[in-house]
Amino acid sequence: MAKRLDISDLNIYYGDFLAVEGVSMAVEPRAVTAFIGPSGCGKSTVLRSLNRMHEVIPGAYIEGKIALDGEDLYGRDVDPVRVRRSIGMVFQRPNPFPTMSIHANVIAGMKLNNQRMSKAQADEVVETSLRGANLWSEVKDRLNKPGSSLSGGQQQRLCIARAIAVQPDVLLMDEPCSALDPISTLAIEDLIGKLKQDYTIVIVTHNMQQAARVSDQTAFFNLAGVGQPGKLIEMDATEKIFSNPNQKATEDYISGRFG
């Protein structure tokens, strides 16, 4: 659990289009790393390349290296399916499986990993994961209701429970609060603070206050113009980025001069 990610000289292409160029960074374990930057700067693309989800789009590929505790995620005989089992992901809009109950949603990933699981084991995983996602007390009496019967914020926490049920090495979050109201957002942020004790967390956010509140490290991405590749401008401790960044572009973005 909680492994580190090392990214070196990462280029990401969609067909002929170079979307992200020359990203190198280290993502520390048991910490929250935030990706910020204007729309289209490639922060979500980088995030999705970390568990090879960008490959879902036909023609997408990378150059460079991404290693999880030294193990190359893009090695020749590495199956993307296995990568995704150890690097979980939470999406922008809550996406519990609508046809499954809350209970079934939580163990969906477990069922993929090991086919046989006793009922007691399953119930235990469901309870721990839902407790871990601060959702247990709200749903414990209606575990057999469909996941889509919950509110947006609860659905997002259900998705987090589903992701941590398989005990991943890394948890990726792609703007997990952008579809939620402030109270639900607060609940998720509290949860992120709690989860970082056990997991390596990478979060993409449009909300700079959120990055400042939840993250330990912040990476700022930017692009020179439309059609230009996104680049990593600066990465440092969150405090440093938000008080005294090295780059002028970072300071301009943080202080709201553009973006």
Binding site: V56, N95, A108, L112
Partner: peptide, 10 residues
């Protein structure tokens, strides 16, 4: 959304 949810679980 649902397809990615499944894929992201591995």
């Amino acid at each position: 959304l649902h397809r990615e949810a499944a894929l992201a679980l591995g």
